[in-house]
Amino acid sequence: MVSVSIAGLFLGLMRLVLFGLSLGLTVISFQAYRKNGSERLQYAFVGFAFISMGVAVTNLNTQLLVAGGVEPGGSFLWFQIAETVPFSVGFAMIYLSLYR
């Protein structure tokens, strides 16, 4: 039987809130891009979309690790790489949107 603590439940709830906020930013940036159509807003939308993907993969990785679905070393490294790439692309796109 799995034991769940109050802190674990709170952390799970906060991760859901974080994912909801990231999706909200993605939707708002998409709406702004559709309304205005500028290249800067397009980069911002793509950036927020990749950051949302990174948040989702981070949550998935944490659940796999906690549930014991993967070992912390070895193959989990590939999951961590898959987690880092969307964040890197997302922040690079936001950087481009602000730089241009």
Rank of each mutant, 00 (worst) to 15 (best):
E39L: 05
L25Y: 12
L64E: 06
L64I: 03
V66F: 07
A82K: 13
R40T: 04
Y33D: 13
G68Q: 09
S52D: 08
N59E: 11
A56S: 12
T58Y: 14
L65H: 10
L23R: 08
E39M: 08
V27W: 02
Y43F: 11
L60S: 12
A44N: 10
I28Q: 08
S75Q: 15
F48K: 01
N36R: 14
A82N: 15
A56D: 04
R40Y: 09
W78F: 09
R40Q: 08
Q63I: 11
I28F: 04
G47L: 09
F45K: 08
F45Y: 07
I81N: 03
V57M: 13
Y43D: 07
M53D: 04
Q63G: 10
G74V: 05
Y43R: 07
L60T: 11
L23N: 01
L77K: 12
Y43S: 10
G74E: 14
G73M: 09
M53C: 12
G69W: 06
S52H: 05
F76Y: 05
V66T: 03
L65M: 08
I51Y: 07
I51T: 00
F45C: 03
E39C: 01
A56W: 00
F30N: 02
N61M: 06
G68A: 10
G47N: 04
A56F: 15
E83R: 14
G73A: 11
V70R: 09
Y33M: 08
I51Q: 09
T26N: 09
A49C: 02
Q31I: 09
T58R: 08
E71M: 07
G47P: 01
A67D: 12
A49E: 06
S52E: 03
Y33A: 08
R34G: 06
V55P: 03
G68N: 11
G74S: 13
F50S: 04
V70S: 11
F45R: 07
T58A: 15
G37W: 14
V55L: 13
G24V: 02
S38Y: 04
S52R: 04
K35N: 06
F48I: 01
G69N: 12
A56L: 14
N59S: 10
G69P: 01
Q63V: 13
A82G: 15
T58V: 05
Q63Y: 13
F50W: 03
E83W: 11
T58L: 13
M53V: 01
Y43N: 05
E83C: 08
L77T: 15
F30R: 00
Y33P: 05
F76V: 01
L65G: 05
G54I: 01
Q63M: 12
G37K: 15
A67Q: 10
A82L: 15
S38R: 06
L25M: 12
S52L: 10
Y43K: 02
V55I: 15
R34E: 10
G73S: 13
